[in-house]
Write a protein that binds this DNA or RNA. Sequence first.
RNA 1: GGAGAGGUGGCGGAGUGGUCGAUCGCGCCGGUCUCGAAAACCGGAAUACCUGCAAAGGUAUCGUGGGUUCGAAUCCCACCCUCUCCGCCA
Length: 429
Amino acid sequence: MQDLKALRDDPEAFDRALLRRGASAQSSELLALDSGRRTAIAAAETALAERNAASKAAGAAKGKGDEAEFTRLRDLVNAKKDEIAALEAAARDAEARLKARLETLPNTLLDSVPDGPDETANREARRWGAPRAFDFKPLEHFEIPAARGLDFEAAGRLSGARFTILRGGIARVQRALGQFMLDTHLNEHGLQEIWSPVLVKPETLYGTGQLPKFAEDSFETTTGHWLVPTAEVTLTNLVAGQILEPGVLPLRFCALTQCFRSEAGSAGRDVRGILRQHQFEKVEMVSVTTPEDSLAEQARMTDCAENILKKLELPYRVMELSAGDTGFGAQRTYDLEVWLPGQDMFREISSVSVCGAFQARRMNARFRREVEGRPEFVHTLNGSGLAVGRTLIAVLENGQQADGSVKLPATLSPYLGGATLLTAEGTLG
RNA sequence: GGAGAGGUGGCGGAGUGGUCGAUCGCGCCGGUCUCGAAAACCGGAAUACCUGCAAAGGUAUCGUGGGUUCGAAUCCCACCCUCUCCGCCA
């Protein structure tokens, strides 16, 4: 949610920010809505104040036994009842219309974000690791013999397209990846492990910005719950409605959860393999910080994600997303793109975003600097650390060998009973 | 799923139609006392929005949303959540 004060203070800057996003300028419309809203509130509150005063006087009259005065005041209030109700309704309506507009506006980008309409304008910040030289043509992950445990036929029978079943060794490798990531974040990065529901109330999705604008991207159940598209939703909303006491920030959470996405609008894209699924696993990191610490926290969080890739010996590059490619709730996003030799390209495996107070305003999440201090909105950040299914792809494609087996990263072997290989038969060895 | 109880300020806990935004206790902040502290005593302190340069005033908030009433923390309805017992269950 955008800050209304920022709009009032500097409408031109507000519009410039929207234009960078490829949206149209709307400060004048919003200011008109805001002005109408304030007028309506003032009118309604004046009427209410009159009513309250009359009611109070009526009570006093009744107490004194002055029936005539009581009746006069009661009738006075009754006569104005419809008018008050109308004024209140008008005020509520004006408020709702402004809110409806504000809640669909994207976050304001930081100045450092590169201009540009889409991913072609993303800026590469750095690279790590050299892509391996192959003496055979590297296969895509679902073509590798060692990945024969990917059972798309069975998943199709059970659940339909964009689902998969993992059988045998590959299932354990995925599990090892998730555990390894979590342990690394806990032991080396100081994050707090969270286990959370994956079904949440709609207001929880609203808090992080998935609703109301992106309802079609998530699954809603018959009970009115929603399946989380990312643990960002649950982790971030842990502070929703809270006023955090001095000294508790920063909060740093991580969780390994299932994520569910409808993938509406991506029909035909990435249909082969497990790159884009309706259900996948992800280790998510969320930090809640003071306003002055959030930018540094984004760098820290990116380091945490990069550290996972380094330990897995997976080459990657860091991209600063352009204005047009940055997500709705983010001020700035760094994507980590892992090298996939089978696809012969870098693919997104993590996305680390700083959201400023954008989500905090939606969630009403605040903190105090001092015990008696005024509450201020916190800043929130989220980042994948990492997408487990996509990491599995990267491990398969980067570790594949001419004989159809996959050499696994050494760092995983403690999680695999010492195994270092996924054989061409799909077993651990 | 059935039956019952309950949700009040940081916490505990009063308050069943009228100066109640809310008694009181604890905790918190400031002060007096003290070499200093404790104790005691005195004072202070919610959040959001609206008007206003400000001082200040107004409106709303006692789980949430409606309703009744001149007037609702108090009465009615729905929903959410918690607890107890029963049933079912990983």
